[in-house]
Design a protein around this nucleic acid. Structure first.
Lengths: 243, 243
DNA sequence: TCAAGTTGTCTATAGTAATAGACAACTTGA
DNA sequence: TCAAGTTGTCTATTACTATAGACAACTTGA
């Protein structure tokens, strides 16, 4: 493993070391409460200067993943929520089941128009008026997911205000006469958080996120709502349940 | 969106611009064959110097995601494979179904010992001898997935040689008398590629990957094999099938 | 108590990144 | 054909990153 490849990647060495250490934590090599190897040892492992390691550890400490104790060492903190992938996933149940306090916040409700992709998902024409709802979800006050939801403005007039009032997508759909719906598609990929989401999720720029695109349909298969969720990968892992 | 936050993230500005452009491509804002906005326009959008944009585009061009034409503009190339999440996912079917040519390669088979995490997954003691198999999967000769598979060396003696011969996990398990098995768990998260995997997957350092941890068990629920797969997020998206 | 090990802080240098400006070389459409 | 727009290349300056060295301040265990 050579650390000299970074010139072509646009990622600072200290950042790569920080990511590597975090990976070690994520992979269970270092459990919560355990001590990391010393700075000199890490420097040797990654073939970098000790100061570079210090810079990396400072970044991790700032994010609360580790805690340095002068003279003693650097200790690990942090844990991830297991988030099951189901047709209908109740956020509060899942987070609550892990002994954490779920929370939510409406960021913004606004008008939008259907891009080609959204038009396709919602079975509308490009340019059709949409309602766009931005929301944020917490576990123990730590943000874990930002979601952008789109509905047809024609089918769901004033949906933004309704959602602001009801604070639930299921209830919003009920308000408009939808009694039953199901998840038609879910697509998962990974990306790098953008600056807006980084601020909302309280993660550093450059961090990985899980991106989930989903569309819900009525019993006849007609699209109702499409959503793009961005999960902080350092706080959430998805569970595929087999049955 | 402020680009001046990067001092604390260890990611070069040009890199953030490159990631942002790639995100636009991934989100369908720019389809294959379409022209991106010009360098000056992108510079204004991201509030950076035009040279920074040029550096970002150069990186994307080097990876084959875009192609610059002097005097004309910069054009988009690339596409992602939809990879369905099933209990038993046949790689060659999936890749082949997308009209791509599947391929595979055994990187290495070696001996390992069970870490705490692996011991837990395989129902073994920490330190138990394991067989470790590293493999790489291609679509149209582009690497899309690196997988590390672990089996009990006691249960599956010489499994590395057997796999090198048979080139199939199903056949390897049959060789050892396993006629039926199922996926007990699958966990998905996202991460940043490490240098070894970056080289294997032919992606730049700092890029996002989808990380899939899975364990297969026999009909009685006893663990047979556990695997960690790393997918290049720029080439693969997961599909959750409902039904 | 003291040596060894560990983190914390300071100074200094060389290389890369970001910005700025300018001009060349090309494409596109009127 | 020519103007406008676009990418390509060059020079220059400032700020950040990576490394190096050194010493301070603390912890830990013999």
């Amino acid at each position: 493993m050579s650390m000299q490849d970074t010139a072509s990647s646009g990622v600072a060495l200290w950042r790569l070391v920080a990511d590597g250490i975090e990976r070690g934590i994520a992979e269970g090599r270092f459990a919560a409460g355990e001590k990391l190897p010393g700075e000199m040892e890490i420097a040797e492992t990654y073939r970098v200067n000790r100061h570079t390691v210090r810079r990396a550890l400072a970044a991790l400490a700032e994010r609360g993943l580790v805690r340095a104790e002068r003279g003693s060492g650097t200790y690990v903190e942090a844990q991830r929520i297991a988030y099951p992938l189901r047709s209908r996933t109740r956020f509060s149940e899942i987070v609550g089941a892990g002994g954490r306090e779920p929370g939510g916040q409406l960021i913004d409700a606004s008008e939008d128009v259907a891009s080609r992709e959204l038009a396709r998902e919602l079975g509308l024409k490009v340019g059709a008026p949409l309602v766009r709802i931005e929301s944020l979800r917490f576990a123990d006050r730590a943000p874990i997911c930002v979601a952008t939801t789109w509905l047809s403005a024609a089918r769901f007039p004033g949906a933004g205000e309704v959602y602001a009032d009801l604070r639930s997508m299921t209830k919003l759909l009920e308000h408009f006469g939808v009694r039953d719906y199901r998840r038609a598609s879910t697509r998962i990929t990974a990306g790098i958080v953008d600056a807006t989401d980084a601020a909302r999720l309280d993660v550093a720029l450059g961090r990985p996120i899980l991106v989930v695109d989903s569309t819900d349909v009525d019993p006849d298969g007609r699209p109702l709502v499409t959503k793009r969720s961005r999960f902080a990968a350092e706080r959430v892992e998805f569970l595929v349940e087999n049955g």
